[in-house]
Design a protein around this nucleic acid. Structure first.
Lengths: 173, 173
DNA sequence: CCCGAGTGTTCCGTTTACGGAACAACAGTG
DNA sequence: CACTGTTGTTCCGTAAACGGAACACTCGGG
């Protein structure tokens, strides 16, 4: 992860709010040198520092560390999935991904454990996905859902890249 | 933010994967002392350190800093929404929330800007939501979508709390 | 022109997070 | 029993993140 990226975002968020470096430093309770160094990417900020600054900006960490999350980039070439969140409830564990499917060949994914379901919301493009023997199609705004304990496929229909959110539900065994 | 909380989660995630402190430290390229102190909450870890460890665990920061994210907890009493992610594409900005709707009175939410759409995936419970004059109903696993430039409502059907993911799409003006 | 109030950067002494090594405790050998 | 390989914790010198102060700079007034 590049600290310069984080720095640029902090600076952008600050200027977006029209607040000066000096005042943000004072509000967040950190030194001006610290904030300056942070925005320039010349420092390697502490959790405490980042927390203080982002809290003052009213922004979760996620907004700073969004897209370069080197999460488990998915299995193959066409599909890129970034793990956004994992939350555990009493009866299941959920993994929420942001997914991109590049136009091109169909992407085959192996089966998961029994009972696992996938929920996909398509935001842009047209996605054809689901069980390998009976895939479903959804346009932008559409939603797909299937039990993923069988091999399944992902493919972008047309030449537009597909953006979607993927939710995996693992029932508690 | 309490560093002890982060520490406990790191330890939980590590043990969940059945991997020892020593090996995780080696894999992540950090000192054992660093990781030990981090898990105990006696240190104030650096962005670089956190990044190395979470990347090795295959978990985004979000998973560590999940629920105490004092993000914009939603409008009223029945609905609690936590901002998980913000990502900006060329044509729109997305805000992804994890939403909980407590059983009880209907929650009314004011209209957003024109063109904003909401996408909801229900994970648990039964949700009745949508435009105030024509709400829709979705059970667990269901999906709702509507244009939210009119006042809209959220309500849990039955006495089970609703868990859902809410995605707001703001088209670029 | 000078002055005060603001901007953001740089300098610097103190604090502390860092990794390597040494450590005690335990497990499975021969 | 000793030996070897673990486990995680603690010690410690070094590197660096920290906040405060000093700095150069740009505005707007008197």
């Amino acid at each position: 992860m590049d600290p310069a990226v984080v720095g640029r975002r902090v600076r952008a968020l600050r200027e977006e709010r029209g607040i000066s470096l000096s005042t943000l430093a004072r509000l967040a309770g950190v030194g001006k040198a610290t904030l300056s160094g942070l925005e320039h990417g010349t420092r390697n900020p502490t959790l405490e520092t980042l927390w203080a600054v982002t809290a003052q900006l009213g922004v979760p960490f996620t907004a700073l560390l969004a897209e370069p999350t080197a999460g488990p980039t998915a299995h193959g070439t066409a599909v890129t999935a970034t793990l956004l969140e994992v939350f555990t409830d009493t009866d299941a564990t959920y993994e929420l991904y942001r997914m991109r499917v590049a136009p091109g060949p169909v992407q085959l994914s192996p089966a998961h454990q029994p009972g696992v379901t996938e929920h996909i919301t398509v935001f842009a493009g047209v996605l054809r996905a689901g069980p390998a023997d009976a895939p479903l199609t959804a346009p932008a705004g559409g939603h797909l859902r299937w039990v993923s304990d069988v091999p399944h496929t992902y493919a972008a229909v047309g030449d537009e890249e597909v953006t979607a959110s993927l939710l995996l539900r693992y029932p508690r065994r």
